[in-house]
Design a protein around this nucleic acid. Sequence first.
RNA 1: GGGGUGGUAGUUCAGCUGGUUAGAACGCCGGCCUGUCACGUCGGAGGUCGCGGGUUCGAGCCCCGUCCACCCCGCCA
Length: 600
Amino acid sequence: MLRDKYCGEVNEQDIGATLNIAGWANKWRDHGGVIFIDIRDRNGIVQVVFNPEINADIHALAHRVRSEYVIQVAGEVRKRPEGTVNPSIPTGQIEIVARELKILNECKPLPFMIEDETDASESLRYKHRYLDLRRPVIRKNLVIRHKAVKGIRAYLDSQGFLEIETPMLTKSTPEGARDYLVPSRTNPGHFFALPQSPQLFKQILMVSGMDRYYQIVRCFRDEDLRADRQPEFTQVDMEMSFVNREDVMTITEGMIKKVFKDTINVELSMPFQRLTYHEAMERFGCDKPDLRFSLELRNVSGIVKDSSFKVFLDTLSKGGIVKGINAKGLAGYSRKELDDLTKEVQSFGAKGLAWIKIKNGFESPIAKFFPEQALEALAERLEAKEGDLLLFVADSEKVANDCLSRLRNELAKRLDLVRDGVYAFAWITDFPLFEWNDEEKRYEAMHHPFTSPMEEDMEKFMTVGAIHELPLQNQDAGIASLHAQAYDIVLNGYEIGGGSIRIYKKEVQDRMFQLLNISPEDADAKFGFLLEALEFGAPPHGGIALGLDRLVMIIAGAQSIRDVIAFPKTQKAICPLSNAPSEVGPKQLKELSIRLDIVE
RNA sequence: GGGGUGGUAGUUCAGCUGGUUAGAACGCCGGCCUGUCACGUCGGAGGUCGCGGGUUCGAGCCCCGUCCACCCCGCCA
């Protein structure tokens, strides 16, 4: 070994010992006489002193050292002289007096400085990710990720789970996200797809009697990126036999508890809060509410129907709703600030934003349309106090909820309601089984088509008319009222996982495809291998998949999952480090029987 | 596909109403400095103002197009 210890591990117990240390020159301070060099490695930094009186040759060599030179130092650890202790670093009590120095490698001038608070752009950082990863703050994130994964493996092993790999070259599935395709050379015109998730395989593993499976697995979705979305991401994928959803939730909670303990030593209180989908939509307007703050939404349709405000009345008469939120203490908002909020909700689809300031009575452009007792009722419904600002959106239930839930998050930001170190978990349960797709004018499975209906809905599920036979206005009477044995786990407003109890009977699965208007031939072509497996003694089973990147992002306090992924891609799904994707030559294309047809 | 913000030195940014030689900080290079840890100090180098076109006597600045990055919508669980 070129070294005896990591830099960050040298401590007062080493005083008097002669140690070899190796790492990168983090900073140097040349006083003409004495030179200080901070050597950095994965674990931290330690100060090395070069004194010309102790060794003139070594001192001269130290003079040549620059930022990020790779050096090896042998020297005596000693307590720092009185008054030169640096309490801001862990090794600040000691220093190493250099007796030997080797420059192992040099380093060109850096494209950006290696420090935690870098201002360098992300594309520059990713192009030189090896430098970016030297920044302690990013390195720390990868350490947290490692500890999380290690904890997950240990926990699931202790719970009897087997880690089993599933194919990466698999079959394209038409539903859901766009697939990444891989051409098959040996089968011209045929393509593999990279898995969006190992869903079908993990169910097959249950039919195989593996009983409990997990995998920390890469998944691929060819959709546009966001701060919390990458084209390839990692799931903690789990599936269990002979369980109900309580079992899955309990095991998941235990796993997350261990991960928080192992990574940042936080004790979570169990069990996590539960909300039904309906309740979440009612109170927060979305199925992944940030529960670190309240700011709940209230349906005020029943109150505003007594007004003469045409916008509200028209909305109600068209079957829409009016919902409001109390922006506590923001009655002082200016016209411009209100306009900004209005623009914000309009960008999410609302037609406008009505407001009432509680400021020596009711101050609002719409107050004149309301009888006094209606205003009082609104204030009471939204628990308004002097100084509050009430905001209302009138629209379809979907749009009103969507806009207000986003507005709710925005208000929390403005009101500074979110504090570090708070972890608000919740299970969202009782999802609708189906979701209406207005563009395609048909129902889709809200979770996925293998999700089991609730037991109490099973009879209705098996007997209700097929969707395509139903007139649209009867939707709610049948299909839309069915609930799924599906559950999401939400943390601080992020969906960090979701799962369900699956369908394990062939006739139920057939029925599901029938209701989704997928023909038996189609179903067979796409999922035939699973359908067949269900006929060979499939046990009741269910599972969950957690988004590891998002979970680690929140634990690490990072703003983007890119900060917890070693080699992330940009928003255009490009890797600036390797320059992937790239063009390939005609020979490769020919082997794959592919001709390009690029539309300019 | 759409909206927003940005692109000027290695980096982060400033650059007025279009007007002489495009600036600052940090970094880099060199000198000085024996206790610093954001070391100090003196000096120096460093620019295709993203790219292409246009308007103008004159464009970093105005106009059109285009590329890239980030945030968001759509999309995606």
